[in-house]
Design a protein around this nucleic acid. Sequence first.
DNA 1: GAGTGGTCTAGACCACCAA
DNA 2: TGGTGGTCTAGACCACTCA
Lengths: 253, 253
Amino acid sequence: MLNQVNHMAINKQYASPSFRPLYEQIKVLLTQSLIAGEWHPGEAIPSEQELAGRFKVSQGTVRKAIDELAAENILVRRQGKGTFVATHNEENIKLRFLRLTSAEGKKEVLENELLDCSKGKIQGEVARMLGLKSGTAVIEVKRLLSFSGRALIMDHIVIPAAPFKGLTGAKVQENNGSMYSMYETQFKVRMVRAEERIKSVAADAETAQLLNIEPGFPLLRVERVSYTYGDKPMEYRLGLCITDDHHYRTELE
Amino acid sequence: MLNQVNHMAINKQYASPSFRPLYEQIKVLLTQSLIAGEWHPGEAIPSEQELAGRFKVSQGTVRKAIDELAAENILVRRQGKGTFVATHNEENIKLRFLRLTSAEGKKEVLENELLDCSKGKIQGEVARMLGLKSGTAVIEVKRLLSFSGRALIMDHIVIPAAPFKGLTGAKVQENNGSMYSMYETQFKVRMVRAEERIKSVAADAETAQLLNIEPGFPLLRVERVSYTYGDKPMEYRLGLCITDDHHYRTELE
DNA sequence: GAGTGGTCTAGACCACCAA
DNA sequence: TGGTGGTCTAGACCACTCA
C-alpha cells in the first residue's frame, strides 16, 4: 500500500490542480500510524532514514513531515536519540494545559479532590461540541483543584464513555487528578490541542459553598474542548476559577 | 560586514561549543534590517535568491531563516509574488489580537469612542512590565469599544511617549481605534506578539457607569503587554470586558 | 564508534502570479 | 514569459547520545 501511494505520488504529484505535496501525504501516513497505536506516547518512532526507505522518499521529505508534526506538539525530536511521540506523562509537561498562575509565578502544590464520577447521557450544546449524538453515554467527573491548600478551581469534565471504558473515580484519584496523563497511560488517548472560551461570571450558591467564597464572587468561567489525533474532539471541560490571587495567562501571536 | 560575518560563519560554524547555525545568523540579520526600517510593513523584501547572494549562503539556508520568521508572523510568504513584511494594516487581520467573539461568531460592527488621550509619567508595576524607568513620559489613551452598538470594552492603553511623538486623540479617531494599524502607518512601530493575563473582577462604580451596567457586574480583566521586533515591550493595555453575550477565545497547543 | 537528528549545499523542476 | 516561492532529491558533514 505504501508503495502504491508513493508511486502515485511520484507520478502525479506535479499534476495541478489539486496538487498535494509528498510531505503532506507522509504526514497523513504518520498520523494514521499514531491513531492505529503503532507507536505510543513516549516511545520512539523509526529513524528518518528508515521512514524514508519505507515510504520511498528522500530523508528531507520525511524530515519536513516530522518538522510539522513536531511544531504541532505531536512528535518531539531529540538530537542524537531519535524522534518520540509526545506525551503529557512527564513531570515538566504534565500541566501543559493549565494556564492558571499565581501573581509572581511561584511554585505551588496542587491537590485534587474528587467530588463525583458518574455515568450519564449527553445532550444539548455539549453533545454538539463533542460531535456526539444526543443521548450518547458519557462519563462525568466533578472535582476541586487546590493550589497550595486553597481550592481555586471547580471542574466539570465530560468524556464519551466508549473510549474510556473502565474509568472510575478510584483511577482519577490514583493519577492524582492529572487527567491527560491518565487518558494516555490507561486508555491510549492523547490530547493534542484544545480550544477555550472564557467568560466572567458571578458564583452561584452551590459553587460558592464548594470554593468557600460568597455567592456573587467573580469567577473565571473556562470552557474547554480538547482534541485528539485527527482533530477529533474527545473531552469537554467547564472550569470555574477563583482569580483574586491568580491569573490566566496566554500569548497572542 | 556581511561577508565577514559569513566567512566567520563558514569557517567556524562547526566548531562546537557555542555553535550557532547559519540560518539563525541570517534571521538576526533580517531582523536587524526590519528594526532599521529597511523594509516597512506591507512591503516586499528581496527574493530568496537575492538574499542568498547577499549573504553568500545557499537559497535553502535563507529559506529556513524566512520559514521561522514567517512562523512567528513577522514575515508573510506569497507564492509567485514574494515575501512581505507582516502588517496589521489589512482588513482581514486588523483585529488579529482581538479575542472577544459573540456566542455564534457572527459579524459585528465595531466602534471606538475616545474618552481621553493625555500625557503622563509612568510608575510602579506598569513601568516594570514595559521595561521603563519610573517617571518616564508616556501617553495614556482611554476608550470604549462597542460591538454592534453596545459598549463592551473599556480600554486603558499606556505607551512610551518617545517613539510615539505626535500621537493625539485626533489621530486615534482618524484610525477608527485600530491602534496597531496606526502604530505602523504613523510611527513605524509594528507589534509582533503579546502576552495577556486574565482575571475575573467585579465592576467598580466608574466603569459600571461607562459600560452601562450595575456596579459589581462580573467583568473580564485582560492585561496585555505587546512586543515589537526583538521582543521589546512597547504597549501596556488594560481591558475590562462585558462577557455576558461574548467570550474570549484562545487555543492551547 | 555507531546511530540519531541537524545543517548546508547544489540543482532540478513545479505552482503561482503579473505583465 | 519571466520571476517568485514551493517541493524534492542526493550527498556531505557536524552535533549529540549512549554503549
